[in-house]
Protein backbone atom coordinates (compact mmCIF):
# COMPACT_ATOMS: atom_id res chain seq x y z
CA UNK A 1 0.00 0.00 0.00
CA UNK A 2 1.58 3.18 -1.13
CA UNK A 3 1.27 5.86 1.46
CA UNK A 4 1.41 8.87 -0.83
CA UNK A 5 -1.67 9.85 -2.73
CA UNK A 6 -0.30 13.05 -4.14
CA UNK A 7 3.02 14.82 -4.24
CA UNK A 8 1.80 18.35 -4.66
CA UNK A 9 -1.38 20.28 -4.14
CA UNK A 10 -1.70 23.06 -6.68
CA UNK A 11 -4.29 25.79 -6.40
CA UNK A 12 -5.80 26.85 -9.67
CA UNK A 13 -8.20 29.58 -10.53
CA UNK A 14 -10.33 29.65 -13.64
CA UNK A 15 -11.16 33.09 -14.88
CA UNK A 16 -12.46 34.90 -17.94
CA UNK A 17 -15.62 36.55 -19.25
CA UNK A 18 -19.07 35.40 -18.27
CA UNK A 19 -20.52 32.46 -20.24
CA UNK A 20 -17.29 31.33 -21.85
CA UNK A 21 -17.59 27.96 -20.17
CA UNK A 22 -15.42 28.15 -17.10
CA UNK A 23 -17.68 26.06 -14.91
CA UNK A 24 -18.21 23.58 -17.73
CA UNK A 25 -14.46 23.12 -18.09
CA UNK A 26 -14.20 22.38 -14.39
CA UNK A 27 -17.12 19.96 -14.40
CA UNK A 28 -15.65 18.27 -17.45
CA UNK A 29 -12.36 17.90 -15.60
CA UNK A 30 -13.73 16.67 -12.30
CA UNK A 31 -16.84 14.74 -13.33
CA UNK A 32 -16.22 13.89 -16.99
CA UNK A 33 -19.58 15.24 -17.97
CA UNK A 34 -20.99 18.24 -19.74
CA UNK A 35 -23.65 20.56 -18.43
CA UNK A 36 -25.96 21.68 -21.16
CA UNK A 37 -27.51 24.55 -19.32
CA UNK A 38 -25.42 25.53 -16.32
CA UNK A 39 -26.54 28.37 -14.11
CA UNK A 40 -24.18 31.30 -13.95
CA UNK A 41 -21.63 30.89 -11.18
CA UNK A 42 -22.21 33.08 -8.17
CA UNK A 43 -19.03 34.03 -6.45
CA UNK A 44 -16.76 31.04 -6.54
CA UNK A 45 -17.17 27.27 -6.68
CA UNK A 46 -14.65 24.64 -5.70
CA UNK A 47 -13.72 21.43 -7.46
CA UNK A 48 -10.76 19.13 -7.23
CA UNK A 49 -9.09 16.36 -9.16
CA UNK A 50 -6.00 14.20 -9.03
CA UNK A 51 -3.91 14.14 -12.17
CA UNK A 52 -0.67 12.40 -12.82
CA UNK A 53 2.26 13.80 -14.73
CA UNK A 54 3.97 10.72 -16.12
CA UNK A 55 7.08 12.60 -17.29
CA UNK A 56 7.81 13.62 -13.76
CA UNK A 57 6.27 10.57 -12.19
CA UNK A 58 4.29 12.84 -9.93
CA UNK A 59 0.70 12.85 -8.82
CA UNK A 60 -0.80 16.26 -8.46
CA UNK A 61 -3.92 17.26 -6.64
CA UNK A 62 -5.54 20.14 -8.43
CA UNK A 63 -7.71 22.37 -6.29
CA UNK A 64 -9.65 24.51 -8.67
CA UNK A 65 -11.62 27.58 -7.80
CA UNK A 66 -14.02 28.39 -10.54
CA UNK A 67 -14.74 32.10 -10.37
CA UNK A 68 -17.70 34.09 -11.59
CA UNK A 69 -17.16 35.99 -14.80
CA UNK A 70 -19.87 38.50 -14.09
CA UNK A 71 -18.56 41.95 -13.40
CA UNK A 72 -20.40 42.31 -10.12
CA UNK A 73 -18.37 39.51 -8.60
CA UNK A 74 -15.07 40.80 -9.83
CA UNK A 75 -13.99 42.24 -6.52
CA UNK A 76 -14.71 38.92 -4.84
CA UNK A 77 -12.90 36.85 -7.41
CA UNK A 78 -9.86 39.08 -7.20
CA UNK A 79 -9.32 37.88 -3.65
CA UNK A 80 -8.54 34.48 -5.06
CA UNK A 81 -5.77 35.48 -7.41
CA UNK A 82 -3.10 35.94 -4.82
CA UNK A 83 -3.19 32.44 -3.46
CA UNK A 84 -3.17 30.60 -6.76
CA UNK A 85 -0.30 28.79 -8.44
CA UNK A 86 -2.01 28.42 -11.78
CA UNK A 87 -4.64 30.24 -13.75
CA UNK A 88 -6.83 29.16 -16.65
CA UNK A 89 -7.73 32.25 -18.63
CA UNK A 90 -10.72 31.21 -20.68
CA UNK A 91 -12.32 32.77 -23.74
CA UNK A 92 -14.88 31.61 -26.25
CA UNK A 93 -13.51 31.10 -29.76
CA UNK A 94 -16.84 32.13 -31.25
CA UNK A 95 -16.97 35.35 -29.27
CA UNK A 96 -14.37 37.91 -30.19
CA UNK A 97 -15.18 40.17 -27.27
CA UNK A 98 -14.35 37.48 -24.74
CA UNK A 99 -10.95 37.13 -26.38
CA UNK A 100 -10.32 40.86 -26.37
CA UNK A 101 -11.21 40.97 -22.71
CA UNK A 102 -8.62 38.37 -21.79
CA UNK A 103 -6.12 41.17 -21.94
CA UNK A 104 -7.78 42.99 -19.07
CA UNK A 105 -8.31 39.75 -17.17
CA UNK A 106 -4.63 39.01 -17.55
CA UNK A 107 -3.73 42.47 -16.35
CA UNK A 108 -5.97 41.90 -13.36
CA UNK A 109 -4.35 38.57 -12.60
CA UNK A 110 -0.88 40.01 -12.95
CA UNK A 111 -1.74 42.85 -10.64
CA UNK A 112 -3.08 40.70 -7.83
CA UNK A 113 -1.48 37.30 -8.22
CA UNK A 114 1.83 35.79 -7.31
CA UNK A 115 4.37 36.91 -9.96
CA UNK A 116 5.31 33.30 -10.62
CA UNK A 117 1.81 32.20 -11.36
CA UNK A 118 1.47 30.05 -14.46
CA UNK A 119 -1.21 31.21 -16.80
CA UNK A 120 -2.68 29.26 -19.68
CA UNK A 121 -4.96 30.80 -22.26
CA UNK A 122 -7.79 28.43 -23.11
CA UNK A 123 -9.93 28.92 -26.20
CA UNK A 124 -13.11 27.08 -25.31
CA UNK A 125 -16.06 25.86 -27.38
CA UNK A 126 -14.06 24.71 -30.41
CA UNK A 127 -16.73 22.07 -30.89
CA UNK A 128 -19.10 24.80 -32.09
CA UNK A 129 -16.92 25.35 -35.14
CA UNK A 130 -17.29 21.79 -36.34
CA UNK A 131 -20.19 21.22 -38.62
CA UNK A 132 -22.61 18.62 -37.33
CA UNK A 133 -25.82 17.31 -38.75
CA UNK A 134 -28.10 19.11 -36.29
CA UNK A 135 -26.33 22.44 -35.97
CA UNK A 136 -24.50 24.47 -38.53
CA UNK A 137 -21.07 25.63 -37.51
CA UNK A 138 -20.95 28.84 -35.60
CA UNK A 139 -18.43 31.16 -37.18
CA UNK A 140 -15.13 31.19 -35.40
CA UNK A 141 -14.20 34.71 -34.47
CA UNK A 142 -10.76 34.12 -33.08
CA UNK A 143 -8.24 32.24 -35.16
CA UNK A 144 -5.87 29.80 -33.56
CA UNK A 145 -2.90 31.71 -34.93
CA UNK A 146 -4.02 35.01 -33.50
CA UNK A 147 -4.58 33.58 -30.03
CA UNK A 148 -1.32 31.67 -30.16
CA UNK A 149 0.65 34.76 -31.07
CA UNK A 150 -1.10 36.74 -28.33
CA UNK A 151 -0.17 34.05 -25.82
CA UNK A 152 3.40 34.00 -27.01
CA UNK A 153 3.63 37.74 -26.80
CA UNK A 154 2.34 37.67 -23.22
CA UNK A 155 4.53 34.72 -22.32
CA UNK A 156 1.68 32.43 -21.34
CA UNK A 157 0.68 28.95 -22.45
CA UNK A 158 -2.10 28.35 -24.92
CA UNK A 159 -4.48 25.59 -25.90
CA UNK A 160 -7.83 25.31 -27.64
CA UNK A 161 -10.35 23.03 -25.95
CA UNK A 162 -13.95 22.05 -25.71
CA UNK A 163 -15.75 21.34 -22.49
CA UNK A 164 -18.54 19.73 -24.48
CA UNK A 165 -16.44 17.16 -26.32
CA UNK A 166 -13.79 17.07 -23.62
CA UNK A 167 -11.01 17.62 -26.08
CA UNK A 168 -7.87 19.12 -24.56
CA UNK A 169 -9.56 19.93 -21.25
CA UNK A 170 -7.35 17.77 -19.11
CA UNK A 171 -4.42 18.73 -21.32
CA UNK A 172 -4.88 22.37 -20.39
CA UNK A 173 -4.59 21.58 -16.71
CA UNK A 174 -1.75 19.14 -17.23
CA UNK A 175 0.28 21.59 -19.26
CA UNK A 176 -0.14 24.28 -16.66
CA UNK A 177 0.71 21.83 -13.90
CA UNK A 178 3.81 20.71 -15.76
CA UNK A 179 4.94 24.27 -16.08
CA UNK A 180 4.47 24.82 -12.37
CA UNK A 181 6.41 21.65 -11.60
CA UNK A 182 9.21 22.95 -13.76
CA UNK A 183 9.17 26.18 -11.80
CA UNK A 184 9.27 24.26 -8.55
CA UNK A 185 12.26 22.31 -9.84
CA UNK A 186 14.02 25.50 -10.70
CA UNK A 187 13.39 26.72 -7.22
CA UNK A 188 11.11 29.54 -8.23
CA UNK A 189 8.51 28.55 -5.72
CA UNK A 190 9.69 28.46 -2.21
CA UNK A 191 7.45 25.86 -0.61
CA UNK A 192 6.94 27.76 2.55
CA UNK A 193 6.22 31.03 0.87
CA UNK A 194 3.95 30.33 -2.01
CA UNK A 195 0.39 29.81 -0.92
CA UNK A 196 -0.58 28.07 -4.15
CA UNK A 197 1.76 25.10 -3.86
CA UNK A 198 1.77 22.60 -1.08
CA UNK A 199 4.10 19.67 -0.82
CA UNK A 200 2.82 16.44 0.58
CA UNK A 201 4.91 15.36 3.49
CA UNK A 202 2.71 13.17 5.58
CA UNK A 203 1.22 9.88 4.54
CA UNK A 204 -2.43 10.06 3.88
CA UNK A 205 -4.46 7.52 5.81
CA UNK A 206 -7.41 7.87 3.53
CA UNK A 207 -7.57 4.60 1.70
CA UNK A 208 -10.36 5.62 -0.65
CA UNK A 209 -8.20 8.28 -2.18
CA UNK A 210 -5.60 5.64 -2.67
CA UNK A 211 -7.86 3.65 -4.89
CA UNK A 212 -8.73 6.71 -6.84
CA UNK A 213 -5.11 7.42 -7.35
CA UNK A 214 -4.39 4.10 -8.91
CA UNK A 215 -7.36 4.30 -11.20
CA UNK A 216 -6.48 7.77 -12.33
CA UNK A 217 -2.98 6.80 -13.31
CA UNK A 218 -3.90 5.68 -16.77
CA UNK A 219 -6.32 8.40 -17.66
CA UNK A 220 -3.83 11.11 -18.30
CA UNK A 221 -3.77 12.04 -21.92
CA UNK A 222 -0.65 14.09 -22.25
Amino acid sequence: MSSITWHYVLKFIITGDAAVGKSSLLIRLTDQRFLTNPDPTLGVEFGSKLISIPDEDKIIKLQCWDTAGTESFRSITRSYYRGAAGCLLVYDVTNRKSFVNTKSWLADVREHADPHLTCILVGNKVDLCDETQDAPAKPRQVSTEEAASFAQQEGILFVEASAKSGVNVELAFVEAAQDILQKIKNGVFDDSRSPGVKLSNQPNPNSLTLEQTSSKNNTCCS
Binding site: K11, G43, V44, F46, W65, Y80, G83, P195
Partner: peptide, 12 residues
Protein backbone atom coordinates in the same frame (compact mmCIF):
# COMPACT_ATOMS: atom_id res chain seq x y z
CA UNK B 1 -21.78 35.07 3.85
CA UNK B 2 -20.84 32.20 1.56
CA UNK B 3 -18.42 34.41 -0.31
CA UNK B 4 -16.38 35.27 2.74
CA UNK B 5 -16.54 31.66 3.84
CA UNK B 6 -15.13 30.57 0.51
CA UNK B 7 -12.42 33.15 0.29
CA UNK B 8 -11.17 32.33 3.77
CA UNK B 9 -11.24 28.66 2.89
CA UNK B 10 -9.21 29.44 -0.17
CA UNK B 11 -6.62 31.15 1.97
CA UNK B 12 -6.34 28.11 4.19
Amino acid sequence: SPDIQKVLTFEG
